[in-house]
Simulated scan of single mutants.
Amino acid sequence: MTASLAVFGNLTIDDLVFPDGSTRWAVPGGSAVYAAMGISLWTGCASIVAPVGTDYPIELLGNRIDLSRCQHVPRTLRNWGLYEEDGQRHFISRNATRNWSEFCPKQTDVASGYQTAAHIAPMPHDLALELVSALRKVGTSSISLDLDDHDLLGRTNLEAILGLLGGVDLFLPSHQDALAIFPGAEPLEGLRRLRSYAPDVTLIAMKCGSEGVIAHVSGAKECIHVPAVQVDLVDPTGAGDAFCGGVLAGFAEKNDPIEALLYGAVSASFCVEGIGFAGLANATEEMARPRLATLQHRVEFQSM
């Protein structure tokens, strides 16, 4: 099984601590898994390009995820995941897997298969930059990017971050990412500042959790607000990554930034309805289409 849309990122096993004191141990996940699930909701299949350990329960991924391009490593990246009351999350690698770069794809992995479009999930800045360059060289038509908030902490070189953005089509940070770049900035102000620094990126979309997404298409006079789909929240883990996958799938299919945002919001809505990636794994495109139709009527525009 192969797929033309690929996610470059990581697979993880996470030990989670929630604001109410509850915990969940050894949860299989990883940004690449959630993004690929967000894609496959619309396409039927997505490839993951990431190291995978023998301890990862790949049987839980079903037949919608192509792992044939994954390099096998002795163990999977293991994290502590700490959730705050305000929605912020902090992931800290466990001591035995603290060198995150060892659990991320490298530029040589681009040649392991073919992708018409690719999403680069959070990873160290230098690795992401190498992947963008390699993907462009092999003719990948659309590239989306989500920032690594580990890398943003303490990084003051805005020029380096913006150099990475120059090579992508879809930039999909969270508000938490934007705050790391522009401390204190409200979402709209952060969006404006990002756009002023990166005028040629086709779409910049800032994920704002339960408040939905605010976005701007290059050259437009207005910004876009796509609200979150109204569903019962079970587990927010991976929703932002699922959104990214849905956006890439929508953009690849429709070549329309607004439609791409809607696809992303619907992917995220299924993600939060189950524990881990169960909500997405059980969702189908037939289930997604009614949500998409409803959400199309809730899109709002405001002056940039």
Score class of each variant (00 low, 15 high):
I204C: 01
T140Y: 07
M37E: 07
I161Y: 12
G246L: 01
A117R: 13
P105H: 13
S303F: 09
T23R: 14
Q71W: 13
S144V: 10
D151Y: 15
L295F: 15
S210D: 01
Y263E: 00
L145I: 10
R94G: 03
L191T: 12
L145F: 14
V272A: 13
I181F: 02
L172Y: 13
M287P: 05
L191A: 11
N99C: 03
H297M: 00
G81Y: 12
A178C: 10
G9K: 08
L170M: 13
N157E: 02
S68Y: 03
S269R: 12
M37Y: 15
K106A: 01
P105R: 06
P236I: 04
G238P: 13
S142W: 12
L261D: 07
Q71A: 08
E189C: 09
A118M: 04
G245F: 10
P183N: 04
R69M: 02
L60Q: 12
G167K: 15
G250Y: 06
G154T: 14
T2C: 00
G21E: 00
G30N: 08
C70T: 01
L158V: 04
M304A: 06
L261K: 11
D146T: 13
I224Y: 11
T237G: 02
D256L: 07
E259V: 10
S31H: 14
L295D: 07
G238V: 11
I275K: 14
F251Y: 15
C104T: 09
Y83N: 09
M123T: 15
M1K: 13
